[in-house]
Amino acid sequence: MNWEALVFTLFSPVIGGFIYGLERVVRARMQGRVGPPVLQPFYDFLKLMDKRSIVIHSFHAFMGIMYLVGTWFSLYVLLSGGDLLIAIFFHVLSLAFLVVGGFSVRSPYSILGAMRELLHMVAYEPLYVLTAAGLYLVTGTFQISEILNSNEVPLFVLPLVFVSILLSLPTLLKKSPFDIAEAHQEIIGGPEIEYSGKFYEAVYTAKWIEYVYVFFLIFLFGGGNHLLGAFLVLFAFFFFNLLDNVTARVNFRQMVAFHWYVLIPLVVINLMLLALWRG
């Protein structure tokens, strides 16, 4: 049992909530607004707790709760320092609940959203697998705990990989320009549309945990240099907020095409050149 990771995982909603609160402030400032207080996500959380619960059917509501549990578990898998590839695939497992929940109601928006959620996965999943291979190439291990203690700094030898991960961050977090699964103006939140009250709270919190998950992946690029890792996380945070503010939504073909035909080749070029150089 890795107690440190367990405690960190238990508190991850708090951290993720703060990140989300900060994000809302930063985004507002970028638009020349004042924006809500930093604690706003927690106010939302407490308010949702107070609402009368309404559901479509129990199966759907239960899947929302399981999405939270699944995400939490997958975060623990990531933080406990095990295999990186396994941790990446556990993320798919947690998304499965959201997708099945989204499919289980007879709402067109929800079904469209669930389908798009899967398309998101199609876009970013190969990229993350390749990234794990790249991190292995640099540090010689798939164990996250060893990557964090290695002497190498992956960022310096995998710059193109880092750039592609940075550009695919919006896909993972469902932010503009790749927010097609959520698309608030179009399908009103996609798979989360039919959740409300306490059940929406679960989905909302799961999204905060995903922030922690994603930024921890960014943190890995610092390798043994944790200060650099922290800086990268900060940079990534501002970068994707900027991207979120200045871009419009693309359609799913453009999203998948961008990931497959631009980002994956970038990663492959970096990996192959590095592997050839090291012989």
Binding site: R24, A28, Q31, G32, R33, V34, G35, P36, P37, Q40, Y43, D44, K47, K51, I54, H184, Q185, I188, G189, I193, E194, Y195, S196, Y200
Partner: peptide
């Protein structure tokens, strides 16, 4: 931005199930 209702935490959800 001029009036910025979001500073009160107000969001336009467009979804009755999550609105107050």
């Amino acid at each position: 931005p001029k009036y910025d209702l979001e500073r009160f935490g107000i969001l336009n959800r467009g979804n009755p199930k999550q609105s107050d």
